[in-house]
Design a protein around this nucleic acid. Structure first.
Lengths: 261, 261
DNA sequence: TTTAAGTGTCTCAAATAATGAAACTCGGTT
DNA sequence: AACCGAGTTTCATTATTTGAGACACTTAAA
């Protein structure tokens, strides 16, 4: 997934195993891993052992299963707290959530996927890693499309290739051509909409966050339900949303998107 | 920190580097890492390169600094969502928070340190240091002492050795002997108190979570401020707290503490 | 302009760690 | 009792990692 071409030695393989375990979303047996693994048995065995020793995986000796280790949570906290957009953006998205009274999301792009790094619900706003860390597809979310639209062309192409174009709802854009048309529109407009493309009944308006060099570093969105809002009504939030995005962008002027984005 | 003795090959070294970068809590230059690294220059160089390629570190080419990569956030989300106590404990701590009207914390022990894995605030009256993914010392927090007290002796000893015994406040227990006395008391009593030992003005009552085999898998606490509660008043919450801890423990019967805990 | 010092990057033979076919355990079946 | 399958270990082979040192490149002082 990352650097499919060159496997980056043993460390790369180990991380590949981490990804594999994560993809199961449940404790997994060695044999299950082995069945879907490019590595021969003893190699995989040693990798999971090492990772377990290190606390990156957790081994349950009773059931003989592996799951993700808590050490990751600790490491990720650091990433989240000191190297994502969160520290810069927090005050602005909180203010925005309070003002519009709807959920506000902050996302970055991680290898073609939208990674939600923060979320403020106007009501109870203490969610942390709960929502943060969640991933969603880029092609059918407001934040995803907003980021995609403003990416440099080479990276954009790569990202567009990585989308699955699965139809989550009848409104999902299910091919690259359709997405590209939409993206051209978004680039012109400056805003992206999620018209129930990912989840039925959920709509959002998103705006890219551009840093001082005009590089897209993430996106903010206001998400709501079709019970309370229509796209037309959401459009009225454009000034609020844009102001917040600009403020975050200005402050993130010196913040850099990691090179592998 | 983990397995200081045996370095687990290249993968172990790479993870050591991740820890080191995390410990800076800010973007860090290669030379800074090198200065505190056991590895020779080219080795460290290749490690950070590999980790950056993999998205575990993020390299800022402008400032030539490394910080934690967002890929970690994604991986950690998996750990948090599917392998911590959180999925089991969520409903109970939410109910408890609603009932007592104070912040409830859920913690696990990660290599001698308290790792807060979840938190429910009933209201917004005060800010603790605690947030999901955040770590705190074991020896001066309610949850930490509760877990330590009920650990098997061998692991307990190891954990007690790992504590720093820094005096965060005048009330902090600053040596192993004092902590051991306290721990004996806690084991007898079944409850641990934080009497402003970590943060001035913040007190808590904590209860260990024991699984079906009587093994401690974490702890729950009710944390509050000295403005609203005294330790005496907190004691009245013992039945509520214990009930929640027992319910979580029962459900986590089959949940296993990772072997490296 | 030159010299020097500090960083980051690259080279290559030597040292070491990773590899994987095959063999071995150890439950639970047939 | 023999078989099977999942997990674990062995060990000679192979490939990767290693690290002293050399090389760029930038900045700072001479």
């Amino acid at each position: 997934m990352y650097n499919v071409s060159n496997a980056d030695g043993t460390v790369g393989k180990a991380i590949q195993v981490l990804d594999q375990v994560a993809s199961f979303r449940r404790p997994v047996r060695f044999s299950e891993l082995l069945a879907n693994s490019p590595f021969p048995k003893p190699t995989l065995y040693r990798l999971v052992q090492t990772l377990s020793n290190q606390g990156m995986l957790a081994f349950d000796p009773e059931r003989q299963t592996y799951s993700m280790g808590i050490r990751l949570v600790r490491l990720a906290h650091s990433a989240w707290r000191y190297s994502s957009l969160v520290p810069v953006a927090r005050p602005y998205i909180e203010a925005l959530a309070a003002k519009v009274g709807e959920a506000v999301h902050l996302a970055q792009l991680d290898n073609g996927h939208v990674l939600f790094v923060d979320k403020c619900k106007a009501t109870d706003h203490f969610e942390t890693l709960a929502q943060a860390g969640k991933i969603a597809p880029g092609y059918c979310t407001g934040v995803g499309k907003a980021i995609l639209a403003f990416m440099p062309e080479v990276e954009q192409n790569r990202a567009l290739d990585q989308q699955s174009y699965t139809a989550y709802t009848p409104f999902t854009l299910t091919n690259r051509a359709a997405l590209m048309t939409e993206i051209a529109q978004i680039k012109e407009d400056g805003f992206a909409y999620d018209r129930e493309e990912h989840e039925q009944g959920i709509i959002s308006i998103a705006c890219p966050i551009l840093n001082g060099q005009g590089r897209v570093v993430g996106a903010v969105s206001i998400a709501t339900s079709t019970n309370r809002y229509t796209i037309k009504n959401l459009e009225k939030q454009r000034p609020n949303l844009m102001r917040s995005a600009n403020l975050i962008g200005a402050e993130a002027e010196l913040w850099q998107v990691p090179i592998w984005n």
